[in-house]
């Protein structure tokens, strides 16, 4: 299965244009899913399917599975400026092993809200998740979306996102990408309206033989639109991480700004980090920056912590946690923060 094509190809030898998931077949039958739990302002959530097609997304096989045989369909409408919070929790397990969901989030004009979507599983079951999340953020709306992939490292995790932002709207994403033998994320934002604003803060953690493929694409059409992509992660064992981040300044997006940074801490010699931070530009009056860095844990910090009596592993763990801290603390739910911290403890 070939997934996550970048918007512009480069040499095939670099193994980054797409990702080929071998030795895995899509589950043929998708049974009813009973591991869904919604809390908060759940009156705003309707269980209905509204079909649509995505501009990018995770390849046609996975997308057509969502179109034709999704077992969860949610339509969330945030009505107005009164701030709302909705918690959507998916618990995957042996009984509920396949989740194929289609979520549509609509924020009406000037609406405000926080939506937390959490994918959980126990430690051992080989569960499967294929989902799509579409967001339509109307004029002046303000959305905070927190997406937590806390599945186990045997799971198959595929997710496609598409956001369309109208003028003066604000969409902030916090993504925690920890689970999945294969965790393949396709993220697309269309900064359609003037002054629209998209912030993406991601932390990822790859251990054992996990493969993380993150393909983030943001297209700026609106004047003075703004995007910030901030990705931090760590990999160890034989984990592999591909980060592909594209900011595409389209003609006439005057005064648009785009920033993209990625930092990957490598904790083992057999781990592999590939990054491709692309800036594409057909408009003169823009500001685009990107920076990526990879490397070992800072030796000075390590020395300091170890001289205080910490073991190497404990010190490394603390440093990585420190890098993740800002993003973890921005999640407005202490229970979730604790789950994330516990997972970091266990994985490192």
């Amino acid at each position: 299965m070939i997934l996550n094509e970048t918007p512009i190809r480069t040499s095939k030898n670099y193994e980054i244009n797409n990702i080929n998931i071998a030795d895995f077949n899509l589950p043929k039958t998708i049974k009813k899913f009973e591991g869904l739990n919604i809390t908060g302002d759940k009156v705003l959530v309707k269980e209905e399917k509204i079909k649509s097609s995505l501009k990018y997304g995770n390849g046609k096989d996975l997308l057509s599975q969502i179109q034709n045989s999704s077992n969860i369909n949610l339509h969330i409408i945030l009505p107005d400026e009164n701030e709302k919070e909705i918690n959507v929790e998916f618990n995957l397990s042996e009984e509920n092993e396949n989740l194929v969901e289609d979520i549509l989030i609509e924020a009406e004009e000037n609406a405000k809200g926080t939506i937390i979507i959490k994918y959980m599983s126990n430690l051992k079951d080989k569960v499967y998740h294929n989902g799509q999340i579409r967001v339509l953020s109307k004029k002046g709306s303000d959305l905070n979306i927190i997406l937590l992939n806390l599945l186990n490292t045997k799971a198959q995790n595929f997710i496609s996102m598409e956001n369309v932002l109208e003028e003066n709207s604000n969409v902030k994403y916090t993504i925690v990408d920890f689970g999945g033998k294969n965790s393949i994320t396709n993220y697309y934002t269309n900064l359609k309206g003037e002054n629209s604003n998209n912030n993406i803060n991601t932390i990822y953690l790859g251990v054992e033989n996990q493969l993380l493929d993150l393909n983030y694409i943001v297209e700026a059409y609106g004047k003075s639109s703004n995007v910030n992509i901030n990705v931090k992660g760590a990999i160890k064992d034989t984990a592999k991480k591909h980060f592909k981040g594209t900011i595409d300044f389209k003609k006439d997006c005057k005064k648009a700004k785009g920033n993209e940074t990625e930092y990957c801490t490598i904790l083992s010699d057999s781990a592999k980090s590939i990054s491709l931070p692309m800036l594409l530009c057909t408009e003169e009056d823009v500001e685009g920056n990107h920076g990526t860095a990879s490397g070992k844990v800072d030796e000075k910090q390590l020395f300091y912590l170890m001289s205080r009596g910490l073991s190497l592993k404990e010190a490394q763990k603390l440093i990585v946690r420190g890098q993740f801290n800002e993003i973890i603390e921005s999640i407005p739910n202490e229970d979730i923060q604790n789950i994330i911290i516990k997972q970091i403890e266990n994985k490192l």
Binding site: S268, S275, P277, G291, T292, S294, G295
Partner: peptide
């Protein structure tokens, strides 16, 4: 356009772009 691929396979490295 800027299309840089960075492929890092060791932990003992200082890399920035």
């Amino acid at each position: 356009d800027t299309i840089p691929v960075n492929d890092i396979r060791t932990d003992d490295v200082e890399f920035s772009h």
